[in-house]
Amino acid sequence: MKVAYVTWDGPDDEREPVLAAWLGADIEGAPVRWDDPAADWSSFDAAVVRSTWDYTHRRDEFTAWARRAGAATRLLNPATVLTWNTDKTYLRDLGVPIVPTHWTAVDIPVWDEYVVKPAISAGARDTIRTRDRQQAEAFAVELESQGRTIMVQPYLPTVEHEGELSLLYFNGQFSHAVRRNPMLPPQGVSASATELTRYSLRDPDDDQFELAEQVLGQVAEELLYARVDLVRMPDGEPVLIELELTEPYLYLEAELDAPDMFAKALADMLATG
Rank of each mutant, 00 (worst) to 15 (best):
K2M: 13
P11A: 15
E14W: 13
E14Q: 15
P17G: 09
L19A: 11
L19T: 11
A20F: 12
L23C: 12
L23M: 14
G24R: 15
A25M: 12
D26K: 08
R33C: 15
D36A: 10
D40R: 08
D40P: 00
W41D: 02
S43D: 14
S43W: 12
F44K: 05
D45A: 15
D45M: 13
A47K: 07
V48T: 05
R50E: 05
D54L: 03
R58M: 09
R58W: 14
F62S: 03
F62E: 04
F62Q: 04
W65S: 06
A71Y: 08
T73R: 01
R74Y: 07
L75T: 09
L76V: 10
N77G: 04
N77P: 06
P78N: 06
A79N: 05
T83H: 07
T83F: 04
D87V: 10
T89L: 05
L91C: 10
R92M: 13
D93I: 03
L94I: 05
L94R: 02
G95N: 04
G95C: 09
V96C: 06
P97W: 11
T101C: 09
T101F: 11
T101Q: 05
W103A: 06
W103L: 10
T104V: 11
V106Q: 15
V110Q: 15
E113R: 14
Y114N: 06
I120P: 15
S121V: 09
R125E: 11
D126K: 12
R131Q: 15
R131L: 14
R131I: 15
D132G: 10
R133L: 15
Q135W: 15
Q135I: 13
A136K: 05
E137H: 06
E142D: 13
E142V: 13
R148F: 15
T149F: 04
Q153W: 07
Q153R: 08
P154N: 09
P154Q: 09
Y155Q: 07
L156V: 08
T158D: 03
T158G: 02
V159K: 01
E160R: 11
E162Q: 09
E162R: 10
G163N: 04
E164Q: 01
L167R: 02
F170Q: 01
G172E: 03
H176P: 04
H176W: 00
H176A: 02
A177M: 00
P182H: 04
L184I: 10
S190N: 08
A193M: 00
L196D: 02
Y199I: 00
S200R: 07
L201N: 00
L201V: 00
D203H: 00
D205V: 03
D205E: 08
Q208A: 02
F209W: 01
F209V: 01
E210K: 00
L211E: 01
A212T: 05
E213D: 12
E213Q: 12
E213F: 01
L216I: 01
L216R: 06
V219Q: 04
Y225F: 10
R227I: 04
V228N: 03
V228A: 05
D229E: 06
L230Y: 01
L230P: 00
V231H: 03
V231P: 03
R232W: 05
D235I: 10
E237R: 15
E237S: 14
P238G: 02
P238K: 00
V239T: 02
I241V: 13
L250E: 03
Y251T: 08
L252K: 07
E253Y: 14
E253N: 14
L256A: 09
D257F: 06
A258P: 09
L266F: 08
L266W: 08
A267F: 14
D268V: 11
D268W: 05
D268R: 12
M269D: 03
A271K: 08
